[in-house]
Structures are given as C-alpha cells and as structure tokens.
C-alpha cells in the first residue's frame, strides 16, 4: 500500500483543476507517470511535479494526501472511485462531485456543489460547506444517487436539491431551500434549518433535531411516533446530538404534488 503526499511548491492563487486526480491508479503506482500527470492551472495544462512536491511512502492503505490546499483547489475528489483522499486546508467547488466510491476527507471548508451527483462512497467535511451540497449540478435531472456525506459545520442553501438517494448528515446549521424537490434519500440536520425547506418534496426523509420556525401547510401532521428504523443510525445520531429515545413528530408531504416525503422533528430537544 502507498501513500502519496502532495504539497504545493508555489502559492496557488488561481483556479487549479484537479478533476483528473481520480484517474491515478495508486495500486499500480508509477513514479514517472505520476510526475508527468497533467493538471490544469490558470487554464494551462502542466505537470503535477511543477505544481506539487510529491512524496511517496509505504502505508497501511492506499491514499493521497494533499496539504496546504485553499479555495482555488477545484474538483478535488471528482469521480473518485476507491482509496482515500485526505485534504488539509480548504477546497473549492465540486469537492467529491460525481464520486462513485472510496472515501474523501476534508479538514477544512469547501465551496459549492460538494458531492453533487455523487454515486457512492463517503465524504467527510470537518468544517463548513457552501450551497448545493449533494444536489444536481448543471444539466442533471437528479442529485446524488448514493453514498454518504457527513459535514461537521454549517451548510449553505439548496442542500440536497433533487437528491435521489443516499445519506447526508449535518452537525451544524443549514441555509434556505433545503431538500427542495427531494426524490429520495435521508438528510439528518442537528442544528437549525432555514426557510422554504422541502418544497416539492416527493419522497425521502428530512430528520431535524431542532424545531423549525414553521412547517408549510402542504405538509400533513401524522402525529408523534417512535420510529425503529432510525435506531439503525442511533450511534451516528447520538454523535449528532440526538438523544437516546428516537421519538419524532412526523409530517408528510409535499401534498400539493402528492408527495410522500417525511419531515421528522425530534421530540427530544
């Protein structure tokens, strides 16, 4: 197993497109191929060695570590397939977008479209994320279709827009228009939620730890229930601040389009 560590040689102050990074096959590692791997910086194609100092070591698992990253590091983890990508610092947009497997960890914050159109794997963000997390990106009818996103900080607007399947867990607060046109999947929010959430929701679940300001009239009150299903998540929910007994107030909607999505509000707050 191999650990590849990339540290910038220069100060990155313009867009650095790292979308090709997922095509590096770590298991068939080749030093010369890696050094001449092509990436885009300032819209010009250049070799990886020109931008990064490359350090290769043996490790217990295959992984790529990127140090000193900032908001200009775009498309990190784009179409990521396997192995581990660990990023220290902030990241730009499309972090983990279209990824199909493996694990991507960001020790910082990122911009928009985190995990959009994701098909599998796991993303962990230790700080905040921008808008359109797990959503559909340009030209796509559905958002993420599988996988898991865990965000320890806050998230912007349009979280899980047209999300098709998967799990998103947010430890902090969420902006406006969360879970709009949600098709399926589960979103768990520990903090506060903004306005106009779950508009046009078809199916799927939004689990809230804190009571929102208001629930749209288009959602029907289904009463208070103990839902055993969420006991499967109970270790994760406890970490997110949910208390032991999983009793929820359930709303179903959006009934204007005969949706059967559910908003579950924890009764333990």
């Amino acid at each position: 197993m191999i650990k590849i560590q990339l540290t910038p040689r220069i100060i990155i102050d313009s867009d650095l497109n790292l979308e090709g990074l997922s095509s590096i096959d770590i298991s068939k590692f080749n030093q010369s191929k890696l050094e001449t791997f092509r990436i885009k910086y300032r819209n010009k194609i250049c070799f990886l060695r020109n931008i990064f100092k490359i350090n290769v070591e043996k490790d217990s698992i295959n992984k790529i570590i990127i140090k000193k990253s900032n908001q200009f590091f775009q498309n990190l983890g784009f179409k990521w397939r396997s192995d581990l990508l660990e990023v220290f610092g902030n990241a730009g947009s499309f972090f983990g977008a279209n990824m199909t497997g493996g694990k991507v960890v960001l020790h910082g914050s990122c911009n928009n479209f985190l995990g959009s159109n994701m098909e599998g794997g796991e993303i962990i963000v230790k700080k905040n994320a921008g808008n359109f997390v797990g959503s559909s990106s340009f030209g796509n009818l559905v958002g993420m279709t599988n996988g898991k996103i865990i965000i320890h900080g806050n998230v912007g607007n349009f979280l899980a827009y047209k999300m098709r399947r998967g799990l998103i867990m947010i430890k902090g607060n969420v902006g406006d228009n969360c879970a709009n046109f949600l098709i399926a999947g589960t979103i768990i929010v520990s903090g506060n939620i903004g306005n106009d959430f779950c508009l046009g929701m078809k199916r799927g679940s939004l689990v809230l730890n804190k009571k929102p300001k208001n629930i749209l009239i288009r959602f029907k009150d289904c009463g208070i229930h103990e839902l055993n299903y969420y006991k499967i998540f109970s270790p994760l929910l406890k970490n997110l601040g949910f208390k032991k007994a999983l009793v929820f107030k359930k709303f179903t909607g959006d009934r204007t389009n005969l949706g059967l999505g559910e908003i579950l509000i924890s009764e333990n707050y």
Partner: peptide, 24 residues
C-alpha cells in the same frame, strides 16, 4: 404504495406501515 425504501451503505431496508407503527 406507502412503503418507504431506505439504503444504508450497501443494504436496503423497507419501512412498511403497519398498525403498531412500521415493520422494518
């Protein structure tokens, strides 16, 4: 038609509404 499908990692679960709540 009121059943709910949930996928956790690679496993899919069904939540079927029944008279005492849900059958998972």
């Amino acid at each position: 038609g009121f059943q709910i499908s949930k996928k956790v990692d690679k496993k899919r679960f069904w939540r079927i509404p029944v008279m005492d709540g849900e059958f998972i």
